[in-house]
Amino acid sequence: MDKTVTLSVIKADIGGFVGHSGVHPELLEKAKGILSGSPLLIDFHVTHVGDDINLILTHELGRNNGEIHQLAWDTFVACTEVAKKLKLYGAGQDLLGDAFSGNIKGLGPGVAEIEVVERKSEPVIVLMADKTEPGAWNLPLYRIFADPFNTIGLVIDPNMHGGFNFEVRDLIAHKKIIFSAPEDIYDMLVFIGAPGRYAIKRVFHKANGQIAASSSTQRLNLMAGRYVGKDDPVCIIRCQSGFPAVGEVLEAFARPHLVSGWMRGSHSGPLMPVSVTNSCPTRFDGPPRVVALGFQLAQGKLIGPQDMFDDPAFDRARALCNEIADYMRSLGPFEPHRLPLDEMEYTTMPLVMSKLKDRFIDLRLSKTKS
């Protein structure tokens, strides 16, 4: 019987070069050096999107394994020391705890993991975003696994025609619910259309229960109680043979959608599909970026990557992102470019409200004419 392989994608922003735009090569080399000596891993790949380091790991220890999470934590801590030496911006900002406590979740880094028994061919896409939040995956995952206008396999592939189940997390109340597509689509859209609170965590094949996708749903601001940068989520998607084709996964990013994040984590902007080379956001620290790396899993080995958005077919999507960015920037500090007030609670807004609280007059109590 084939062994079960775990694919873990763990990311953290532990120091930007320059500002919030990129990762210094010394940090990437440090991470590679630490991981290359680990007996826990079958294989690994170290990359980045914007100022986030992304560790793509394969092993046989399962999801939420303490040793794997400890390895990732130690790697980020070591990279933080390099970042401090180079005086990189925000060194260690995603490491919220002083020490590892058995599981990296809740300590800042984002985590997405899947366990699979490899099929005859096991293609996967690893999505990595910068300058946005976990709910940024809601619309693409809906398109990929529930929208036949994006994924024709839902109509013509007998192995997909039954649909998929979506695990949706309430990031505020810390609850989850399972929606079945297509039956529950309208109910599900009520929730996932509010990506600041509800995020798709996992997707499962309805017929056989196999994992189809997994995303990170960590919210840094909720963990830290203050603004420490956007969450910059990651996502793993299995492709082909009963799952969406590679092209169907990527097609979901051909029509850019607005996401929360961008400058100071406080603005809406288009999610731009780019290559790793072009993943360093500079204009107003943006616009937000998404990178897609493709791998074939073979006995746990990561065959790849293929830089999937390094393709002129996405040039029009990028051009449209720039047009949308021009329009959104023209609004400056006004909504809907700036996020609504309930999303601004970790910025200067509470300080301003506190300073001005005595200057607000309650019109219901005031006897003066207004």
Rank of each mutant, 00 (worst) to 15 (best):
321 C>D: 00
37 G>D: 07
162 G>R: 12
218 Q>C: 09
97 G>R: 08
300 G>M: 08
127 L>K: 02
182 P>R: 03
74 D>T: 07
24 H>M: 06
193 G>Q: 12
122 E>Q: 15
147 D>M: 10
208 N>G: 10
35 L>T: 03
3 K>L: 14
72 A>L: 08
99 A>R: 15
278 N>W: 00
1 M>K: 14
357 K>Q: 06
206 K>V: 06
172 I>K: 12
94 D>S: 10
97 G>H: 10
36 S>L: 09
185 I>P: 06
255 R>W: 01
105 K>C: 03
269 G>I: 00
35 L>K: 04
313 A>D: 14
185 I>D: 08
153 G>F: 04
202 R>N: 13
60 E>K: 09
274 V>M: 00
80 T>C: 15
366 S>L: 01
69 H>M: 06
1 M>T: 15
244 P>C: 05
305 P>S: 13
229 G>H: 11
104 I>Y: 07
193 G>N: 13
233 P>K: 05
216 S>Y: 09
158 P>Y: 09
244 P>Q: 05
115 E>R: 11
240 Q>A: 15
39 P>Y: 07
246 V>D: 11
214 S>A: 15
365 L>Y: 04
298 A>P: 06
69 H>V: 03
11 K>Y: 02
92 G>F: 09
73 W>A: 00
92 G>P: 05
127 L>D: 01
259 V>T: 00
52 D>T: 09
332 G>K: 12
77 V>D: 15
157 D>K: 04
275 S>A: 11
126 V>T: 07
317 A>K: 00
161 H>R: 15
1 M>W: 12
239 C>P: 03
306 Q>L: 14
98 D>V: 10
278 N>L: 02
88 L>E: 03
222 L>C: 04
336 P>L: 01
215 S>L: 07
62 G>P: 01
255 R>V: 03
283 R>P: 04
233 P>G: 06
26 E>M: 12
286 G>L: 00
312 P>G: 10
247 G>K: 10
204 F>G: 05
4 T>S: 12
298 A>V: 14
